[in-house]
Nucleic acid binder design. Sequence first.
DNA 1: ATTGAAATGTATCCATAGCTACATAATGGT
DNA 2: ACCATTATGTAGCTATGGATACATTTCAAT
Lengths: 149, 149
Amino acid sequence: MPRTDRKKAEASARPPVQPAETFRRSRHDRALETAQDYVEAIADLTAAQGEARVVDLARRLGVTHVTVNRTLARLQRDGYVSTKPYRAIFLTPGGSRMADECRQRHQTVVAFLQTLGVSAKAAELDAEGIEHHVSPETLAAFERFIKKH
Amino acid sequence: MPRTDRKKAEASARPPVQPAETFRRSRHDRALETAQDYVEAIADLTAAQGEARVVDLARRLGVTHVTVNRTLARLQRDGYVSTKPYRAIFLTPGGSRMADECRQRHQTVVAFLQTLGVSAKAAELDAEGIEHHVSPETLAAFERFIKKH
DNA sequence: ATTGAAATGTATCCATAGCTACATAATGGT
DNA sequence: ACCATTATGTAGCTATGGATACATTTCAAT
């Protein structure tokens, strides 16, 4: 049985290597991030303007309308939004629920960072990246901290 | 000039929409995340085993050796690693520097979450996703908090 | 020195996510 | 009612990041 030990194979020849699952989760998350960004934006725009259009989303998310279009098709396929050609975009009940959860979590993360002493600008910026990776347990810890300070 | 106002265009007809830049940054970050995960893994493996091989990285990151291979080619192209066919993988000085920064930041994030009361397991899991999105300002706030508690 | 298992490399496919360029639909002003 | 502008849609390109299937190279045990 060749190729087991390495030049300097100390440490009982290759440890369990738990990290793999960690990275897998981290990657799987990415699939949801886009959906979350979109439903959140759609909810915001609908609240602010009465409806959400492709152009609005493109501006908001900093991509072209083409990218928005294709992504919306995927979101519709996955049951988050419903769209008809040349019409406004609406969230399904499921998409709406996701949007609510996202907004809630987003606000918590921003408030937490600011409570920690991070500037409003940086808090907003960092929250956008961080929020997608905060587990319920960590989110709860954030909330405890906010209440206590 | 048509199509400016909407059905309910309150709020001064489409606000500046700053978020776009936020999302753009958040997306651009992703490009670096892979590089960071890889150089960190390579540094760890080299420290633990004397060298980092494709199989090790595959196991560690939870992907096939094919993915590792292609990613390594990109990392080499971008100057983070140097590889030769059928040989071990080495970090360039630049890659090594990046690995150090990543490990430092990773440990800070984990320690911060644990100080906050998050379990070791969740802290490790969340840190993997969060660490890539923590700005220097927020990282500094994390460090302050750790020292104070 | 041979050789078979493990490691590595290559070909090819899929999905996501961005883009430009071009085509079509809607709509507000006239 | 017309039509120019805007919005939306479609075609086709690139890059990343995942996969399977197959080919080649290494290396340890014999």
